[in-house]
Design a binder for these strands. Sequence first.
DNA 1: AATGAATGAGCTTTCATTCAT
DNA 2: AATGAATGAAAGCTCATTCAT
Lengths: 210, 210, 210, 210
Amino acid sequence: MTLADHAAPAPRPGRRADAERNRAAIIKAAGEVFAECGGGVDVREIARRSGVGMGTLYRHFPTKDALLVTVLERQFDAWLTDAYQWAVATEDPWRALTGFFEQLLDTQAGNRAVVESFATTGGPSDACVQRCYAIIDELRTRCVDAGVLRSGVTTEDLFLLSGSVSQAVLTTADSHPGKWRRLLRISLDGLSSRNTEPLPEPGVGTDARV
Amino acid sequence: MTLADHAAPAPRPGRRADAERNRAAIIKAAGEVFAECGGGVDVREIARRSGVGMGTLYRHFPTKDALLVTVLERQFDAWLTDAYQWAVATEDPWRALTGFFEQLLDTQAGNRAVVESFATTGGPSDACVQRCYAIIDELRTRCVDAGVLRSGVTTEDLFLLSGSVSQAVLTTADSHPGKWRRLLRISLDGLSSRNTEPLPEPGVGTDARV
Amino acid sequence: MTLADHAAPAPRPGRRADAERNRAAIIKAAGEVFAECGGGVDVREIARRSGVGMGTLYRHFPTKDALLVTVLERQFDAWLTDAYQWAVATEDPWRALTGFFEQLLDTQAGNRAVVESFATTGGPSDACVQRCYAIIDELRTRCVDAGVLRSGVTTEDLFLLSGSVSQAVLTTADSHPGKWRRLLRISLDGLSSRNTEPLPEPGVGTDARV
Amino acid sequence: MTLADHAAPAPRPGRRADAERNRAAIIKAAGEVFAECGGGVDVREIARRSGVGMGTLYRHFPTKDALLVTVLERQFDAWLTDAYQWAVATEDPWRALTGFFEQLLDTQAGNRAVVESFATTGGPSDACVQRCYAIIDELRTRCVDAGVLRSGVTTEDLFLLSGSVSQAVLTTADSHPGKWRRLLRISLDGLSSRNTEPLPEPGVGTDARV
DNA sequence: AATGAATGAGCTTTCATTCAT
DNA sequence: AATGAATGAAAGCTCATTCAT
């Protein structure tokens, strides 16, 4: 049992089959609709696309926001899990870290809602963020131990980097898909231990221009 | 006359003075409101804060979006100009480039609407983007000539980097102001010529993990 | 057999025992819920509290309103019976009449749905009203025979009086419980034969001010 | 200046004429609709009937409830004023008191919303209740001074009596209009000083049957 | 016969935009 | 030209009733 096992679909026993099917349909449809249109879409669109009535939707999720969070969590969690599993199986610590980021960003490419969540809430949900932190921290530690990571780089730095590049992923999704990979590589290279200059302290006033 | 002179307020001749004053008041208020609340605010709030009626507002700007674009353009343009002027006056090409980014990001720190614009429209407006591109290209060329920039880095890469870090600026604005500077430094360091590995081609399929 | 025997639970022969149990549970729960919250409650709350599913509830009662009426009838009927039995056993005709009202009002104190029914439907149901009328008429006749009732007072007057005071009972239920008893006493005293002025005729135009 | 001057229509100076007309139309329509259908009606019905859009309605009243309260206050206040003015001009204290009640009840006959308000909120609004209390108290004092009021009768008793009879007014509005006048007379006669028995103390346990 | 999930019209409220004054 | 009231199409959410299991 590692960090990577995530909330299973949880097929509660007494649940009727069609209810479960509907719930799944809602989550699926919501996942697509939120991804395409962002969190601002009309709930009706999700109901329509999932083939259920409004009441059914609201039976399964008490508010639109609850649905959004659920969907984002599931999506992000799944991506996180995949990327983590790949990373764990990778020998080279550096490649594990960078590959993890690339894979994670790759899967969330063009998902408006997920990317929005980084800008508005700081991430899909606290639980997701926690889990992401834990994973990044693990990968970071391996790099530190191997001496390949720039000194002073924190987990927060890495998380922030990931969320920030995800915006670039969305920006370029339509016009220049894949271009973000160059940006990611650039930023990651700035993380290698070949960069020896100290990073600025978190204090506000630091000014690189000086 | 250089790249940096931007669209002046354009005092159209036949215009009555108070109309011009109103227009200015609207733009000022909209700038503040959009910055604080993002592009989703109620137009009424802008009218209220600028002290004009809704009709006046809509006389000057046909749609909310037109107002938003106008405001973003002016703000971004001003910041761009400032940062550019500083950069032009800086001897060291590398410092000019990095300082330019930091200054630009610093001024837009916490401006919700501007940052949103990068995620949704790819930038405040096409004109802004063009101008930003031109400036970045100029600074980039200086670095290339001085041999301090990683080979293969394009203007697009740099622009994308800027837009992406701006998201981090917003994300951390409340909780950890200034933390984005570390991220910026990291990314910029990935741009130095000490990084010799080739960047991935823009093609979609490239996979850093391999 | 007197006026007072009311519709028995009527255990229809072919009925399965659990069906009867469910029906009883529904009526019990509905009685409580309607009393507490009034007729506007969500039917779900009743289903929940009675421990049956919505389908079962609607199998026993075709509409929410049918359930409401059934419940009100049963409750009111029971109270009516109790109050009547007490009144019948009371020698003094005046005390029988007044005590009947007080007892009836006392039991329905705070039952939102019953009181609402007087305002909206004129009473829990036609059958209830009929029965109540019959009882009141009986008690009234005794008073008339004994010469203690104001001349011209009709059964309708008395029924109306009861329904009207019931509102006061509800109004004061939380803040001043029991205060309605003063109001009841006042009104009842207006009914005594010591008041000799003729009551206004039912015609609309009568105006006490003239 | 007496108790009876009530909030004037308040034609705020800068207000546009049509806005005032709309506001009036809304209040008028709402008054009718609420009176006919009670507080539960669809707001759309009021918008339709007053000939304005939903937005206009909500511009004038922030919530449905605010509209309801405003309407009830105005209506009740107007009735209160009328009845009070009549009462003040009446020499006979007893006739002033009883006539006041009759007139007040007469005007609110069949107004569902106002009557509902007594059952749910205890009255149209706190301000209304205060004013009503003050008026009743004044009329009551005159009766007490004249020695025509039953000893121990409080203003609260009288207010409660009024609210309670108003239910009867509503109940009989359609089937037996005017019948409530008999009930009112009965109750009022119970208030005359010819009734010498002490009223029950407000304590809960008092039982008239004993 | 029992269950509780599904339905969808209907509710209150918001807000970009138009238009009478 | 300026004002801000008016508009009405959504939007999020509820709940009496039906229906598949």
